[in-house]
Design a protein around this nucleic acid. Structure first.
Length: 1129
RNA sequence: GCCCAUGUGGCGAAAUUGGUAAACGUUGCGGUCUCAGAAGCCGUUGGAGUUAUUUCCUUGAGAGUUCGAGUCUCUCCGUGGGCACCA
């Protein structure tokens, strides 16, 4: 704590009087007392079931930084706490939890510097945070606290990752599905590019048949599936930050530098774990419409997703470049302006475009190569820095215009981005400013095709006007022309309407230590999911938190960072339905043996029973069996099925071992009652052994084989086998190899993308959240947090919510219906002026007379901009180390400091700690003042000066209960009409204001009420009780104390919000403001029950009106009941 | 460049569907209590002119709609934020 003096020295006076008056408002004692009571009595514990309606109010949980909380941090928590407490009083069962986003870079950077384990510092920081929060009196249920860095938590983060890894996105059903269903498609139909559309991905895969798929090696299959998985490992352009040695997501990069630390970031292509958030782009976009978020927040997400509707369009490549390879290829572009198709005068490719090398002519080759190399070496930041610098190169190639058959030159230019659309544009310089600049620079033709602008000096980009020089589009309005052009393009079969998104897949791997390990191991280079039963995959110990000498991430330092799969080959090698892509007969046999082992040894009775029931089972295959076998063999159903397989002495007609399903094909005699009973008994035993039995009759199979096969397939796909305990521990399991584990860790946003679900059921070891809990709490009713998460956290949490919804884990599709963004509390810095070369400080008003340096001074030793000189002198502050001997030039006997609003930060000496405020004024004052500062959403500077206002309010409230000598003055008398009116109106206003989250006006209303009650000398129990309850969400400590003083035994948190009596909200008379020609002239008291006509009559007859009318007859009189009267003369 | 938000006293702000602009608090000023006060209490505090009364002006600028505009519409300016060679 570099030299900040004990601030209690400055503010000693606040508490100094309390000893004189025994019943003065002693906030320190009161707050300590009630915080202990709440903790001891577990006052804020929440149950997952209740007769009351539920309400879930959530804060964005903090990253526990080493600096602790400053007064800006609790703002949102105070607001949410008020809502939580208010909702409890209003009869809701309220979930209001808190936790910590405790994985992340700062702890790791600190660890690198100090060698301390991030876990240790993180724990210490969390302890400090909890301590600080408890001082403010939040009603969190700490029993539900979650920490993302806790293995019992990140077990489920890893589990979710695995589910995402095991899924693909089906654009037809518009949801994520098990990768099994994709495999089933491959096995049935193979792959054709139309499947890319279904999955919404772009791959470089060539078509393959079902037969080819089956013959692929494991590695080949894995590579194919990687193109579809929602979490996938792929070569990708990433934001590489060399200074931090890690990859960053798009939202973690700002203006070419890292958001944290501001280090330069460059583009790099490397293998990278990514999340296919792009698959959810349209749902993330469309579902925004139904959310009750601010428009700017939704707009930020819309921008980030960046949907643009247009059309794809292919251009044929023309000679002189011609080879058999080129002739097969076309240049595909994406455009949102197909109406300008006749204005295309060139085509531009991104330097990275795959066709560049293929189409470049010999004479342009060296120039093109040089340009491509130069473009690659330009870092992202450089490219951004000189956006206006136009560069490009002609390739020598041409394409054919699809409608005019003209030859159009093909250029490359780095204004075209490889990662967006097709990496190629059709340039229409007349109507696109970037194309225009490019065309002017290289003197390419510009052809106007939309009227309405002047293209002399700039392009005409507006989507308004009529098409000209455009053949069949001539005379059409742009909007009509767009549709017509798309129709013509589609007719020619050279393109079609298409939607592009700016959103990119999210980089998921970080070359860092302090994050969740990614539960993947590599078996012969194939990424394989760690078995779910082996989660959590706990972060290993390492000697240093730095990359290895060979540049691998820190986890590579861990000894034994390997994985040994347990011998349970068919459970969960792949897919949620237990589909094994790498099964083989031998391991299946092992599985089979393991499965039956416990019965053979432990349950011999059952085993013997099966023997009894298995007489006469060996028989020659029937015709039906033969027919069916042709359909079941070779995994035609997608599953391996065996024929005539023995379970001890029982021979199953067909069996799918992996799914533990027996398929029996029976003759008609099985309809015989005796036989039927016999079959049923045997089925019973097989069930006991863990098998399902499905039966078909011979004629069913013969008459409708396809249907039978379909039923079998459906049954197998639908059956989810879980590995029971005996299996895992079975004897005789083959010893498996150890495989290397993935060494990158998950990004910071992983753990925060689902934490709101964990609060519902934080200790569940079997599921991330129980169905019961999530069905009860559903989604968050009110979510409070900062705007800085608009494109990061809030997009990811929506993404994961939708995914978990798709796979049936949760019933909700959006995490939070209502979102409020609390504004940032800025710092208000103070400055002193030191005369250059002298140990002399001059007050702000005198600074112009001297040559001075402006220096920050700790705001905690400045009150109302006046510097506390003795404390300043005593402070050990490096910037003012000789202050003790300094000379001070004062104005009016004071040293006045300058001030400025800046970001709150230690380096600016403007950090105000909530701890200090709590010590000086109490938590209740802090809570009230933070709310009183202004609207929650607004940014505002912190200025401790105003705090005396709310502190004084609490003292005045306290004095309604005690007189000057400390005696209680609360009386049981019946309240007067005026008192009841005051209280009922206040309660109504407060209730309405809480409902619209206008907490600053609530505090104002409390002040008004207390001022009025003081004036009325109202000390009535009934009135004060209502006020205490209403105040308790805002100032819980003083309210508990006064509630107790009023004689209540139970906590005020268990009270009910007072019922508002409408009777006291209305007056008999209303004082009408009377305007003449819109100008206020006088007020006129009229009974409320008067009709407008009666009001008009009464006013016109009045003396004042006559005075202003001067005998004229009014042209018009407007009477708005209970509002205003306007007389137009 | 595009999009979103926003502009009211010295300061933080209020005015919820168009209806008395500046509530509530703070600062400043004056008073009271006091050995003392940075506590408490009382008064005053948008500007201008008049002066026991009262008039005029004032919500970033300009226009418009309306009996009436801080609020609605248009144009412009300032501030904050988001996106940005995204075709």
């Amino acid at each position: 704590m570099d030299g900040i003096p004990p601030t209690s020295l400055v503010h000693f006076y606040v508490n100094s009087l309390t000893d004189k008056n025994p019943m003065e408002y002693k906030f320190t004692e009161i707050e300590k007392k009630w915080q202990k009571v709440w903790k001891d009595q577990h006052t804020y514990g929440v149950e997952n079931h209740s007769d009351r309606p539920k309400y879930y109010v959530l804060d964005m949980f903090p990253y526990p930084s080493g600096a602790g909380l400053h007064v800006g941090h609790p703002l949102g928590y105070i607001a949410s706490d008020i809502v939580a407490r208010y909702k409890r009083l209003a009869g809701f069962n309220v979930l209001h939890p808190m936790g910590f986003d405790s994985f992340g870079l700062p702890a790791e950077q600190y660890a690198i510097q100090t060698g301390q384990h991030p876990e240790k510092t993180t724990k210490e920081n969390i302890a400090r945070y909890i301590d600080q929060m408890n001082k403010i009196g939040f009603s969190f249920d700490w029993e539900r606290e979650v920490r993302t860095s806790d293995p019992s938590y990140y077990k489920w983060t890893q589990w979710i990752f695995l589910q995402i890894f095991k899924s693909w996105y089906n654009n037809k059903t518009k949801k994520a599905e098990s990768i099994d269903t994709l495999i089933a498609i491959f096995e049935k139909d193979g792959f054709s590019t139309s499947l890319e559309q279904t999955a919404g991905v772009e791959t470089e895969l060539k078509n393959f048949s079902a037969e080819q798929w089956k013959n692929f090696s494991e590695k080949e299959k894995s590579d194919v599936l990687m193109n579809f998985r929602l979490a996938y490992l792929g070569e990708a352009w990433v934001n590489w930050c060399p200074a931090m040695g890690t990859v960053l997501a798009n939202d973690e990069v700002k203006d070419g530098v890292s958001e944290r630390g501001g280090y330069p970031v460059e583009r790099k292509r490397m293998p990278q774990w990514s999340m296919r958030i792009t698959s959810y782009a349209d749902r993330l976009l469309n579902d925004l419409n139904d959310l009750d978020w601010t428009e700017s927040m939704k707009e930020a997400q819309r921008n980030w997703i960046g949907r643009s509707q247009g059309t794809s369009l292919s251009f044929k490549i023309s000679p002189p470049v011609s080879s058999s390879e080129v002739e097969k290829r076309v240049i595909e572009v994406f455009t949102t302006r197909p109406d300008t198709i006749f204005g295309v005068t060139f085509v531009t490719l991104a330097p990275e475009h795959e066709l560049v090398s293929l189409i470049t002519t010999a004479e342009n080759k060296s120039a093109v190569d040089a340009y491509v190399t130069a473009a690659k070496s330009r870092s992202e930041r450089e490219r951004m820095a000189d956006v206006k610098k136009i560069t490009g190169q002609f390739t020598g190639a041409f394409v054919i215009h699809p409608f005019t058959n003209e030859k159009i030159p093909v250029w490359i230019g780095d204004y075209v981005l490889a990662g967006y659309g097709t990496g190629a544009v059709m340039a229409v310089p007349a109507h696109d400013s970037r194309d225009y600049a490019f065309a002017k620079h290289f003197q390419l033709p510009i052809k106007e095709v939309v009227s309405g602008g002047n293209i002399e000096n700039e392009s005409y980009d507006a989507k308004e006007g009529k098409c000209i020089n455009s053949d069949f589009l001539n005379g059409l309005e742009v909007k009509v022309a767009v549709k017509k052009a798309i129709a013509e393009i589609e007719k020619l079969g050279i393109g079609k309407g298409k939607i592009n998104y700016r959103l990119r897949d999210a980089a998921f791997g970080r070359q860092r230590y302090w994050g969740e390990p990614i539960p993947i191991y590599y078996k012969d280079g194939i990424p394989v999911a760690v078995d779910e039963s082996d989660l959590p995959l706990v972060l290993p110990q390492v000697d240093k938190f730095l990359p290895t000498e060979s540049g691998e991430p820190p986890l590579a330092r861990a000894k034994d960072w390997v994985y040994q799969p347990q011998p349970r080959p068919f459970s969960e090698v792949e897919g949620r339905n237990g589909y094994a892509i790498d099964e083989d007969e031998a391991t299946e046999d092992v599985f089979f043996a393991e499965m039956l082992y416990p019965y053979q040894t432990a349950n011999k009775e059952l085993w013997a029973k099966l023997k009894n029931l298995s007489r006469d089972n060996r028989k020659t295959p029937t015709e039906a069996e033969n027919i069916l076998w042709q359909e079941l063999r070779n995994k035609k159903t997608g599953f391996k099925i065996r024929r005539q397989h023995a379970i001890d002495v029982f021979i199953a007609d067909f069996i799918c071992i992996r799914k533990k399903v027996v398929i029996e094909v029976d003759g008609e005699y099985h309809n015989d009652p005796e036989q039927k009973a016999y079959d049923e008994q045997r089925t019973f035993v097989l069930n006991e052994l863990g098998f399902d039995v499905i039966r078909f009759f011979n004629n069913e199979v013969i008459n409708n084989t396809a249907n039978v096969v379909e039923q079998i397939k459906k049954y197998l796909v639908g059956k989810n086998i879980s590995v029971s305990a005996p299996l895992g521990q079975a004897a005789g399991g083959a010893e498996t190899e150890k495989y290397p584990l993935e060494t990158t860790t998950m990004p910071g946003w992983a753990g925060s993308s689902w934490y709101y679900l964990r609060y519902m059921d934080p200790k569940n070891e079997k599921e991330l959240v129980s169905k019961e809990a999530v069905n009860y709490w559903k989604s968050v009713d009110l979510y409070i947090g900062g705007t800085e998460h608009a494109t990061g956290h809030l997009l990811y949490v929506r993404f994961w919510t939708k995914f978990l919804h798709d796979i049936g884990v949760i019933p909700i599709n959006e995490p939070a219906q209502k979102l409020i963004n609390q504004g940032m509390i800025q710092g208000r810095s103070n400055f002193v002026y030191r005369v250059k070369g002298e140990n002399k400080y001059v007050s702000s008003g005198l600074k112009d007379k001297y040559d001075t340096t402006r220096l920050h001074v700790d705001v905690n030793i400045v009150v109302n901009d006046e510097l506390n000189i003795p404390v300043f002198k005593a402070a050990k502050n490096s910037a003012h180390e000789n202050a003790i001997d300094a000379e001070f030039l004062l104005e009016n006997g004071k040293y006045i400091c300058d001030s400025e609003v800046e970001k709150m930060s230690k380096s600016k000496f403007n950090v105000v700690s909530p701890d200090d405020i709590c010590d000086q004024y109490g938590a209740d004052t802090l809570r009230l003042y933070e709310m009183f500062l202004g609207p929650l959403e607004q940014h505002k500077p912190w200025n401790t000066n105003g705090i005396t206002g709310v502190h004084g309010f609490l003292k005045r409230f306290w004095r309604l209960f005690f007189d000057e000598s400390g005696n209680s003055r609360v009386s049981k008398d019946s309240p007067t009409e005026a008192e009841l009116k005051c209280v009922n109106r206040s309660l109504k206003k407060i209730k309405e204001d809480i409902d619209r989250y206008s907490f600053n006006t609530c505090v104002s209303q409390f002040m008004i009420a207390v001022n009025e009650l003081t004036d009325l000398k109202c000390y009535k129990q009934e009135i004060l009780s209502s006020m205490v309850i209403a105040l308790s969400p805002f100032a819980p400590h003083i309210s508990e104390e006064l509630w107790e003083i009023l004689g209540n035994k139970e906590s005020v948190t268990k009270a009910t919000f007072p019922i508002i009596n409408e009777k006291y909200l209305t007056d008999d008379d209303f004082s009408y403001p009377v305007q003449i020609n819109g100008k206020l002239r006088f007020n006129f008291l009229a009974p409320v029950k008067f009709t407008p006509a009666e009001v008009e009559q009464a006013i016109l007859a009045s003396e004042e009106a006559q005075k202003y009318l001067e005998g004229k007859t009014p042209k018009k009189v407007i009477v708005v009941p209970k509002r205003i009267v306007n007389i137009v003369v």
